[in-house]
Nucleic acid binder design. Structure first.
Lengths: 229, 229
DNA sequence: ACACTACTGACAGAATCTGACAGCAGCACC
DNA sequence: GGTGCTGCTGTCAGATTCTGTCAGTAGTGT
């Protein structure tokens, strides 16, 4: 048996236990040495499996690694499909692919009749206003926001003059025709909005900005008079 | 990337296709040779995955799983949240509420760190073009589409003249400023598009229309030159 | 006939895997 | 404190697997 197959078996095996299993038991069940079990567990953990190893007890797979069965109403499915279609059509490619992939995962855990509803969903996104042809890589922006990392921007303002700034990216807003990065600007010491199609160059940095994104977002909302959701 | 990881990716990739996909496409997507895809497919089949391979067509994963999907990635969650926010902002109230409750159901099965990601998601929907103030009740339209029921419409065309028609509602398309009902019109014996803000009166009927919605949708797509998804 | 596809076998070099051994650390029980 | 159970890590060399390439067969639809 190949290692790949054994790893799949190991997941299945761990799924069956509701109490901790010792590595020795797993090794015995899979016909492999204990050392190899340790390596396999590490590999699964690297792929996102939450496997708790307690000395003296054994291993336990915590929920949240695999998607459990889900139930949705007709309307909830319609909402999910329509939303995903909008993302696929109007956001960046990476996010569109993620929307598609998420929907496929949901479909896989639905009962047959609901999966059929999802597949035959008849809410469509019509073509919209053209999006800017060239713009900053939104995937990079999204990752910097998610990880709270500083960004170095070359930005062309509405007069055509370019400036370089270090900003703390806080949010990304999607409008019908443009996308706007919300960020704290170190230069201006204030929140600024940057149209993604006017970002001439974009350099992600590994430096984490000092305040939490959630707090910044709250301040920004307040500064704009936007009620918290 | 390890083979085990690639096998999981391959399953997820196959899940995303509802029509057969060729091995060459899979090889391209996973960055390996075609021969390796054949080997991987064989491995998955040996593990119990039901993958049909048709010469001349490609591969299709039948529902029912070897392994449930892996938990959502952070990008997939971003896509789901953004899509739901768009629905909440730009679709009708009932669908917006459904988007919220769907998201709540998803949040309920997330591990803590991912739920935190979902709660602090920083992709926003900016205010868009104003939607028509008065329009037909979209919830009624959606239900008639879902249940394949005839509708009686009083429709005001672009010249302001009103006519009454019996239609078979097939789909609902969301544009930036308007929503359009796609329906087969019994009067004209053809597909017609009805802006929801020009529907003066709307009477759902209990009478089911004689053809299946999916077949009508296919015909409509063909008549409009829209490639099937 | 043709294009496209699934599928199989063989081979060699590259990459990975595996078991064995040695050792550390946390925990429970005696 | 000692003992036994467990998780976990590092190292190493030999065994194993994996992978791409090439060649060839066969099924399907146009």
């Amino acid at each position: 048996m190949s290692r790949a197959e054994r790893l799949l078996d190991l997941i299945q095996l761990l799924r069956q236990y509701r109490y901790p299993v010792s590595g020795a038991v797993l090794a015995e069940a899979l016909g492999v040495s204990l050392r190899t079990i340790y390596r396999d567990i590490a590999t699964l953990q690297a792929q996102g499996a939450r496997i708790d190893g307690e000395p003296g007890l054994g291993y336990l797979l915590r929920p949240g690694f695999l998607l459990p069965p889900l139930m949705f109403s007709d309307e909830e499915l319609e909402a999910l499909v329509l939303g995903s279609r909008w993302v696929a059509d109007r956001a960046d490619d990476a996010l569109g692919a993620a929307a598609h992939s998420a929907l496929a995962k949901i479909a896989a855990v639905l009962p047959d009749d609901l999966r059929h509803d999802l597949d035959t969903n008849a809410l469509l996104i019509g073509p919209g206003a053209p999006l800017p042809a060239a713009e900053a890589d939104l995937a990079v922006l999204r990752q910097a926001i998610r990880r709270e990392r500083k960004l170095v921007l070359d930005y062309r303002d509405q007069h055509g003059t370019t400036s370089q700034r270090i900003v703390w990216p806080v949010a990304l807003a999607f409008f019908d025709r443009v996308r706007v990065l919300v960020a704290w600007c170190e230069l201006r010491e204030g929140f600024r909005h940057f149209r993604t199609d006017r970002i001439a160059a974009l350099n992600p940095s590994d430096q984490r900005y000092p305040r939490r994104r959630q707090a910044l977002l709250r301040d920004w909302r307040e500064s704009q008079g936007i009620p918290p959701r």
